[in-house]
């Protein structure tokens, strides 16, 4: 409601007294308004009444588009495969079973896979966040020759898709060492993921360096000066002054890093032949299933029925990350706003 309408109300209420209904007050208020004002107020009131309804419809519909596959996943994972061919079964299965889940766990070798994934995932994410923070700090707070050019390389790291460099990288890890002196085969060892992570060159590290640079740029310069006067060298300043200030943005970037490493199957399928993460398992789930469950050639599985196992695999592999998301939802969504990527 605009302010120029509020003034006459107060006045009129004073004049006539308090023994007046709201309707009458409104009538008097309307009389003191010009035609344009009345139409504006009316339009606004109508919009305010209708809009929440439309908003609800829009959000509900689109939210359903997002949740639909997840609900479907849960519904599929616990149903018997015969239900897939039953046209009356859409959401609620007729025959509940946890056999499918058990079989999928067996086929994916879930215990061992999960262990490998966590070892790779948490370790790499952690190391990469630290190395990217150090690099980002270097770009944000120091002036040195060639900084602009070097930062251009960081931008390039964001733009170049991993597929472009994956083959030379593979060769590099296959014959790792100094040419002519020695070379070791690093393929299938976790070092292929850890080495780039340690040197801030892992999955989406360019983006992470950028985020940290923006964040550290936003911190006041006085912090640094104060630390210097108190006798801190630049490195100690970073550890004792800057890192505590950046705690929440560290957590956000770490969470995103965990998600990206968890979901990565491209880099892992390039460098691993025998080591399997949850993502690579799921990527090859068709072959895994046919090897472990349907190795008997007489068993014929309809592709429609295969969905049951696939959805069970999906459910298994997103559950850990989903739990993380539900628990730390705030840091996923609010951290980016505070991390300084904005502005």
């Amino acid at each position: 409601m605009s302010d120029n309408t509020a003034a006459p109300v107060v006045k009129s209420e004073h004049e006539i007294g308090s023994g007046m209904s709201k309707k009458q007050a409104k009538k008097i208020r309307m009389q003191s308004m010009s035609k344009e004002e009345i139409s504006y107020v009316r339009r606004k009131a109508a919009l305010e009444k209708i809009w929440p309804f439309f908003r609800f419809v829009i959000l509900f519909g689109l939210g359903f588009v997002i949740l639909y596959p997840l609900i479907y996943m849960v519904s599929c994972a616990f149903r018997d495969r015969a239900d897939m061919n039953d046209p009356t079964v859409m959401w609620i299965p007729r025959h509940y079973t946890i056999e499918i889940m058990k079989e999928t766990i067996k086929a994916m070798d879930f215990g061992k896979t999960l262990k490998t994934t966590l070892l790779l995932n948490i370790g790499c994410s952690f190391v990469q966040v630290i190395s990217c923070a150090i690099t980002g700090y270097g770009f944000a707070r120091f002036n040195f020759k060639g900084k602009k050019f070097l930062f251009l390389i960081v931008i390039m790291m964001i733009l170049v898709p991993p597929q472009v460099i994956s083959l030379p990288l593979f060769a590099q890890f296959r014959f790792f060492g100094i040419k002519g002196l020695f070379s070791i085969n690093l393929i299938d060892s976790m070092l292929t993921m850890y080495l780039p992570a340690i040197t801030a060159n892992g999955i989406r590290s360019g983006l992470m360096i950028l985020i940290f640079r923006q964040f550290f740029k936003g911190l006041p310069k006085e912090l640094e000066d104060a630390a210097y006067i108190d006798g801190c060298g630049p490195f100690m300043t970073f550890i004792r002054v800057m890192i505590p200030n950046a705690a929440s943005s560290f957590l956000t970037v770490f969470l995103f890093s965990v998600v990206w490493y968890w979901n990565d199957y491209y880099v892992s399928t390039t460098f691993f032949t025998n080591t399997n993460t949850v993502a690579t398992m799921l990527y090859n789930i068709d072959t895994r299933l046919s090897e472990h469950l349907f190795s008997d050639a007489t068993v014929k599985i309809d592709p429609r029925e295969l969905i049951v196992w696939k959805e069970a695999g999906c459910l298994l592999s997103i559950t850990p990350i989903l739990v993380l998301y539900v628990l730390l939802q705030k840091h996923f969504t609010e951290g980016i706003e505070r991390s300084g990527l904005v502005g």
Partner: peptide, 30 residues
């Protein structure tokens, strides 16, 4: 301070040479 700046990014610089720039150049060569 400038030297410290190089110090901060040195880790990334080494990694980027090994795991980004050289592979990028090689892939162009290939």
């Amino acid at each position: 301070k400038a030297l410290y700046g190089y110090g901060f990014i040195s880790l990334w610089l080494v990694g980027t040479l090994m795991f980004f720039l050289i592979p990028l150049g090689k892939s162009l060569w290939y």
